[in-house]
Nucleic acid binder design. Structure first.
Lengths: 212, 212
DNA sequence: ATCTTCCACCAGCAAGATCCTGATGGCCGC
DNA sequence: GCGGCCATCAGGATCTTGCTGGTGGAAGAT
């Protein structure tokens, strides 16, 4: 099993580089609760691991109406696995060994497609954010946001009420964690506040920010 | 190809669940007569099947003025197929493997559109595009479009209000995604704008374009 | 309370990323 | 060979980004 983790890590790093923010689960129950509790854009599921019941995890997600797209990894030649996976509600598959950039590309395509059907409008208080149209409104009035501001706002709106640290934000927005020599995050928070309202994002000194 | 029927069945069940009533044909002649004799709201046509001449079926339908919307399924990476399909009068395409709810959603959209205007003419604002004849008008005046411009415009008009990334466009217009090696997309956007209006397609820096 | 220290804020700026478009040459079908 | 389409280039226009420096304010120490 040791190199399964290697695989997962390599994939995770590659995806992070491609701009995804990634979380792992190395066994069934963990994966189950991750997919149930958190709101993800997509999941990658390795069906090739023994004792993992990847398919059961997938079925359980679907039973609970978690409809994010799922990409399954199968060993080469295990055709039935692939068919079972698709029947269980997976959206795409890749056979191992895989090229990380390809996984990233497929994931992006899946996310894009699924975004097409879900109403991707987040609402919170006087704020509204539609990620597929890139439009945001505050008190009904449209506000112009740049790409980075949009990413940040999106991140906050998915984490209402939770404290979000600056490190977390840099990781999410930049994929590369250049240690905190700059105050870029503060600057972007400031810009968001200016475009909406001062009390939209509360700062928790020494810990980060929170939106609620 | 033993699982083609599996695919068809999975799709059929999914569509039935989504409220469609479904009939199947597993070969060309059957499909031809189904589409000719019966009156359907829409058809899903798998072009990936050998010996099926899905395209010929489609052409024959169109020749006989059966104008229900047609959604084609293509294997991924077969770019020419999808171009041929669209040129032969298909209204939309989805690459396999597909997400059943997505197929359902697209079908509904197609049906709604065709019920609205009974032809393959897309209208949006001052713009008009007939997807079967490839003729477009702006403010009532016809505009000349090349094949690529047409495909791009078609793509935009099917995605009104949505952000469409450059990658997405290259993927749709071409086979491979060599990002940022060329600025072809920008050039075509520019040409479309010149032939219609500057504010037809809005550019969203860092994210893509949006028509609305 | 007052002071001190440190963290956070934000206007403005320069560098760089991103995009636009006229021009050029190659390619394909006729 | 000719005409139209296509991909690419290059220069310039425009917008975004990340940073700086001075200011304001909070937490902790005295």
């Amino acid at each position: 099993m040791e190199d399964d983790r290697d695989i997962a890590q390599r994939l995770g790093e590659g995806l992070a580089e491609a701009g995804f923010s990634v979380e792992y689960a190395y066994n069934g129950p963990d994966g189950l609760s991750l997919g149930t509790d958190d709101s993800f854009d997509a999941a990658v599921l390795d069906l090739g691991l023994p004792q993992m019941q990847g398919l059961d995890v997938l079925k359980e997600w679907r039973r609970k109406s978690r409809n994010f797209p799922v990409l399954i990894l199968t060993a080469r030649g295990t055709w039935s696995e692939k068919v079972d996976g698709l029947n269980a509600g997976a959206d795409d598959y890749i056979t191992k060994p895989f090229h990380v950039p390809e996984v990233a590309a497929r994931l992006k395509a899946l996310i894009r497609r699924s975004a097409g059907q879900a109403s991707s409008v987040l609402t919170h208080g006087r704020l509204t954010l539609d990620t597929t149209t890139g439009k945001a409104t505050f008190d009904g009035a449209p506000i112009e946001l740049t790409a980075s501001e949009l990413r940040m706002l999106n991140y906050f709106m998915h984490r209402i009420g939770r404290i979000v640290s600056q490190n977390e934000l840099t990781e999410h927005l930049y994929a590369t964690v250049d240690s905190r020599e700059s105050n870029t995050i503060e600057v972007y928070v400031s810009r968001l506040r200016r475009k909406t309202s001062t009390d939209l994002i509360k700062t928790i000194r020494g810990l980060g920010y929170r939106m609620d």
